[in-house]
Design a protein around this nucleic acid. Structure first.
Lengths: 385, 385
DNA sequence: TTGAAAGCGTTACCAC
DNA sequence: GTGGTAACGCTTTCAA
């Protein structure tokens, strides 16, 4: 890509010496050569190499093992997969591996996959249906044992139809499908209570004394977005707080959209300005923090800010972000765990797994300033630059 | 894992209605059923499905396509791979997908892999040789087209011997091996100039007026660590600055080790304290920042801090971190690009690719305070909490 | 333009 | 305990 190929040629020229026969190892030892070398049948080789229960004489076993080692033999997982109809490969579909949210999940998936001898193929879709669909196709061609969808489900009709069609082939094959979050197609759900999550956040803010709480939402068509937003609205109502129209800011889970929200907030007349803002994910909360700071507003003195997810950067920002921690690694792990159990028929699609979340109080939230206690920013801001 | 399985059973009981024959689609359509349905030979089906150059009558082609669609046929990539000896799968070995450094690289790898029709298997090793070796084994069993090693090479004799042995099988098979960073085994290097990198950092600090510059190093046995540290030491010398023994702090590229370094620094008698510290990666720089702040030292007023990598959190911390940006995504992309060209024999192992880095000046660095200009911290620290 | 058949590297069933 | 051999699902000569 780009400027990548600034090549440097270090001249380790091939010396014109007497070329020795490279290696006496015949290229590509298959089970057949091992059998020949060990003077046994391929069946026997197969039995010892795959740790079959079928009995094999100790002496014979040793001969096979020796031959295998001598020939650098490694059984082809492809050939094995063909006949056993088991590839031991799973796919995980994420938005972006570089996003700490998905990164945490992927790590969780992989940890339990490795533990169980599975390989995982990572598929970045950037939430684009075409890419997701194409990956689903390809993964099916490779006969993966299952797919894990990370990230919220997209509520688009065409997408829904297409993906259901794509997944049909999976279930026909007996491949499992688990989704982290609610998805509009048949799959095993591993979820966190998105509604309660935000509700807990709002409860906490109200407990602090806030009554004017804004909300930065996510992409409207995502199930997660709707669940979380519902949590905000209903909790406000539960506390008898009005749902002011201008208080729900649009966002798309990116840093930039959080920053934009900060500007919208700052533009509000002082009297209408909320005393707290809850972002529906950390990245937007962090962007909002940055935006507010740039506009001369202090957090949490002028405005409390909180997020959702507890990605790593949340603890590094200034001030450290109060947030609702999701068990990202645990979600990935539970997802992979479920996929395996699904295949073993220890789980069925009418069940689900719900993971706990947790309020993490750091320093971006505080009680609202009592009205009239205005302190000019200049007196309190740091003088260090 | 852990507390993952708090199951919720939503009773979508199977209704005892007249069970309709599920699907008229015979399970597992293979090329044979397609051939039968279309009334042609499997050879012909293969030709149209795999877009072969071999001519096929248009009418015949249509019949095949129709049959394929009707049967939900999808060619088995496994079977294809067996006969073509091409799996279109590559493996990438990283320390930890949740580390933003590796996350960026993985994303780069995957982007160009997808573009070229490759699938990528992610392998987290936590830098543990046993895990790495086992993955190498497994990936070879799957006959991957190549492996990309992200992260620095380990300078351990046993490891080196083992990995060379493991890789021998790869080259015998004609699989490619590229490494991001220098590795002590035959592989195509895609690198950034680690020496120059740190040298640039030190130059910048010296330019600012610093003469007492500490350094937080990495795990001693990593090639990257040695290269970077060499950059530090030699640049100091080039400026005629002494290499004070206590100024090289141990670290292991983690946040925690950066924090520990901060404590060591703070414990130094005021007169011996450096005016700047260069961490050999961002995570340690961020940890150091946090540690310094906790100990009442101000950055950059009391001490300048800079890092290397420019991972995403670097711009969020307080103060935003001055650092040397590595093209993480570009490294992954160039790595995958090289792997592909290696297979096409457009590249050979005696070449290499070097990617540019860039100094990113943010707010964690400043000129050192002139001696005697001491200002009590209490007067300058923020009053906002 | 089409088809028959020989692999590719395993496993699993059935004899011995 | 061991061996023969039919799958598994595809591609690729070689003939027709």
């Amino acid at each position: 890509m780009e400027n990548a190929f600034r090549k440097t040629l270090s001249a380790t020229d091939s010396l014109p010496c007497a070329i020795p026969e490279p290696d006496p190892v015949p290229p590509r030892a298959s089970i057949v050569q091992v059998a020949e070398t060990a003077n046994v049948s391929v069946a026997t080789v197969s039995r010892v190499m795959s740790g079959s229960a079928h009995p094999v004489n100790e002496e014979t076993r040793r001969r096979v093992l020796d031959a295998a080692r001598a020939l650098h033999y490694s059984p082809s997982a492809l050939a094995q997969a063909m006949v056993t109809r088991d590839t031991r490969i799973v796919g995980v579909i994420i938005g972006d591996a570089a996003d700490p949210y998905f990164a945490g999940i992927v790590r969780g998936v992989e940890d339990v996959a490795r533990q169980h001898g599975y390989l995982v193929i990572v598929c970045n879709s950037d939430r684009r249906p075409e890419i997701e669909l194409r990956y689903l196709q390809t993964l099916n061609d490779y006969r993966v044992e299952g797919v894990i969808f990370a990230g919220g489900g997209l509520l688009d009709e065409t997408y829904q139809r297409d993906i259901r069609a794509a997944l049909e082939v999976y279930s026909e094959r007996g491949a499992a499908c688990v989704s982290l979050g609610r998805h509009p197609f048949p799959s095993f759900p591993v979820v966190v209570d998105n509604h309660r999550l935000v509700a807990d956040g709002v409860d906490y803010l109200v407990g602090l004394g806030h009554r004017a709480i804004a909300y930065i939402s996510g992409p409207p068509l995502l199930t997660t977005t709707q669940l979380r937003r519902g949590g905000y609205e209903q909790t406000l109502a539960a506390h008898g707080l009005p749902l002011r129209p201008g208080y729900v800011l649009p966002g798309d889970y990116t840093y930039e959209s959080g920053r934009r929200a900060a500007h919208t907030l700052a533009a509000l007349p002082q009297a209408d300005r909320p005393t707290a803002v809850m972002a529906s994910n950390d990245l937007m909360a962090i962007g909002c923090l940055a935006g507010l700071k740039a506009l001369g507003l202090r957090v949490p003195a002028d405005l409390s800010v909180m997020g959702v997810d507890d990605v790593a950067p949340a603890q590094f920002v200034d001030p450290p972000l109060t947030t609702l921690a999701l068990p990202l690694h645990g979600m990935g792990a539970a997802g992979m765990e479920s996929l395996i159990r699904l295949r073993r028929a220890e789980l069925t699609l009418d069940q689900s797994v719900t993971l706990p979340h947790q309020l993490v109080i750091r320093q971006s939230t505080a009680a609202p300033r009592p009205p009239g206690s205005f302190v000019p920013a200049a007196l309190t801001r740091t003088a260090a630059h």
